[in-house]
Nucleic acid binder design. Structure first.
Lengths: 162, 162
DNA sequence: GGAATATATTTCAAGCTTAAAATTTTAGGT
DNA sequence: ACCTAAAATTTTAAGCTTGAAATATATTCC
């Protein structure tokens, strides 16, 4: 039943958003479940470890929260648990006694490497249908949502990631 | 030919997922912020009210949690606050003293109608660039993520290298 | 130096979320 | 009736998340 009223562009956009949310949530829920069941871990922990893994010299609390776009207080708790688990440690910052530098321990690095490999496999599995062309099409459309262009722009491709 | 490594389909899928998550999270965060700042409400409350608004006769707790795909205990708390606010009320289910039927109050219906109108406007604004063709393309691609058509493994193309 | 301001971080209160355990009530089987 | 299993819901414990208030330290400006 195609009961779509003619001029409901607005409703169509609303439906699109709901589908986008549903898709993202479904994948996210599956990742959380697997991290939990197979590794006793969580997505927030994974995200923090991921950020730390890219900076072997460590990151300040505020750098972590900026990178992950979450609040400072949030990071405090996650790092706290990471430290308890022996996956991270806090170092003093010479010259600034307010700040901390957080760094993965050897155990943390090792654990993250395993997690990351599995994680990539899971995503690869969940998006298994997508070939290069579809990936680019979807990526470009999402980019358009994220960064609306003011005027029509004939872009070839080549937006870069961060 | 950008410097994309040859066999990184797997990495490309990973990047795609990251972008999907980023896009969805950005919109969601904006919605939460506006619900909070302009209406003193939250997305979970909005979701529950939305479900209730579609069933004027009310819904059982378990029906709400099934519809929204969240846990029972979760719904308990949200409905609790909705009732405190005078937006919902609980009715007995004749013949089953275990169950509750939750229903929007008149005030709740009115409040939701306003919220819903604003909400649609926000989405329409955030997805303002998208016309019917783009909506359909994006919708179809998301559908493919959500419900992969499992065809036989036919392609021998890309076993990925790592 | 000392006051005001800015920065880095934690603490707090409130709400969301889940899985698992507990409660209450209903339904079945004997 | 009695016993057991199933169903609807709440409670609990733990963790995530935020914005705002609180701490502690650093910097800037007279």
């Amino acid at each position: 039943m195609k009961s779509t009223p003619p001029s409901s562009l607005s409703k169509d956009r609303l439906r699109l958003w709901l589908k986008l949310l549903k898709t993202s949530s479904a994948i996210e829920a599956e990742l959380r479940r697997r991290l939990r069941d197979q590794f006793g871990s969580t997505l927030p922990r994974f995200d923090v470890m991921s950020a730390l893994a890219r900076s072997p010299e460590g990151l300040k609390m505020s750098e972590i929260s900026t990178l992950l776009k979450v609040s400072n207080g949030n990071v405090t708790g996650i790092v706290e648990r990471l430290v308890e688990d022996g996956h991270a440690l806090r170092l003093a910052v010479p010259g600034d006694r307010r700040a901390n530098r957080v760094k993965l321990t050897a155990a943390g690095s090792k654990a993250f490497a395993e997690l990351a490999a599995e994680h990539e496999g899971w995503i690869n599995e969940m998006l298994g249908e997508f070939g290069p062309e579809q990936i680019e099409t979807l990526s470009d459309l999402l980019e358009a949502v994220l960064h609306p262009a003011e005027k029509d722009e004939k872009s070839g491709s080549a937006a870069n990631a961060e």
